[in-house]
Design a protein around this nucleic acid. Structure first.
Lengths: 204, 204
DNA sequence: AGGTATACGTACCGATCGGTAACATTGTCA
DNA sequence: TGACAATGTTACCGATCGGTACGTATACCT
């Protein structure tokens, strides 16, 4: 673990280092898990499309469940990157931050092959408490709830927790209806409805 | 199908007629599919817990997928029964109808083993277009959207379609967060948030 | 050149998946 | 009694599931 690697191997900066098996596997698994679901995809198909073999998968990941958890941990990073991008675009203006984030979600849901939120889908696929994938998913949602409630408070809402939770309901609704109805579905109105809800919550 | 059954078999009213194998199977499948997910449950476990054998399952249902579709068709009936119950409780008052329906949903989501909406979950489990289970699920959601928009129009909302879709987002959000957060989660605020959204949409 | 550690492939495991063939048993009716 | 429909019984199918034992190739360091 903490072994000293005295000198890095002599690789030039612009030299192409072939991607490790584990990386290729995670890349393929991410795509398949998101688009078709975790339960729907077997490890054989993952290694086949990654151009590696099964033992390579189990050298990099202790189990399929842990591979799924790794996929979600990466998803988590990308999710917060998108979220923080919307936040950074409107410093000190939580209402505009929410609007920016939801506008982007609303647009994504209208794409033809939209499959919702990988976190949400994983939690639906694995209702069992303590499942590695579910643990990651739950943590992500708890944090999202916390931040939405904090932003609602920063907006000056009378009942900030209710508004924050309302925004979370709209977001999850957009994730689900986005993949249920496709383009033209209810999800395209998520930003508008959130704004109405915010307006109503601030006037109280 | 339309074969004439001249005279009903002589069964006394209080006589217990043993449930047919198909019924027992569907009853067990409904419970397991809803609680654990369709993909998570194998046909062997269904027949085992139903106390029947596998050929009996395949005499009553052409495939596991069709059994899942049957489960959802029954779910559909029960769903609309609950919906119409809320509607009938407040004749001519769509806002109160929505409130009644959402209050009930909010309460259900706080139960310890709440698993969301069987329709929604099935659509997440089966993203593939045309899958028997998904077909039933999509039809149910389309109809729900239609009715919510109609109710929003009856309320006199300026943009009835947006309000109807907003209510659908809140509902789907409640289904999902109900199973993600458990008791104390955002879903308990669904009726309150819907009312705020309606209020805001009517004032416009 | 030789040792060593890392990375990978071939081949295989038992279990379970959804689904079926063939036949025995039962209860209900005419 | 005899026909019929429904169910049970047993045994099986090929495919796929997640996972592993074990041998091989490659690269680096001494």
């Amino acid at each position: 673990m903490s072994r000293i690697k005295s000198i890095e191997p002599a690789i030039k900066a612009d030299e192409v280092v072939p991607p490790r098996a584990g990386e290729k596997i995670l890349r393929v698994a991410r795509d398949l898990f998101y688009r078709q679901g975790i339960r729907a995809i077997g490890v054989d198909e993952i290694v086949r499309r990654a151009g590696v073999t099964k033992p390579s998968l189990y050298r990099s990941f202790p189990s399929k469940d842990e591979l799924a958890a790794s996929y979600l941990r990466q998803y988590d990073l990308e999710f917060w990157a998108r979220f923080d991008e919307a936040v950074a675009a409107h410093p000190g203006d939580p209402r505009a931050q929410i609007a920016a984030f939801l506008t982007r979600i609303g647009k994504r849901t209208q794409k033809p092959d939209y499959r919702g939120c990988g976190m949400t889908n994983a939690a639906v696929e694995y209702p069992e408490r303590g499942h590695p994938a579910r643990v990651v998913s739950e943590a992500n949602k708890q944090e999202l709830r916390r931040r939405l409630r904090a932003m609602a408070a920063a907006m000056g809402a009378g009942d900030a927790d209710t508004l924050g939770d309302g925004l979370l309901l709209l977001i999850e609704g957009a994730y689900i209806t986005g993949q249920l109805f496709g383009a033209g579905g209810p999800a395209k109105s998520v930003a508008r409805n959130a704004d109405l809800l915010i307006e109503a919550s601030l006037k109280k």
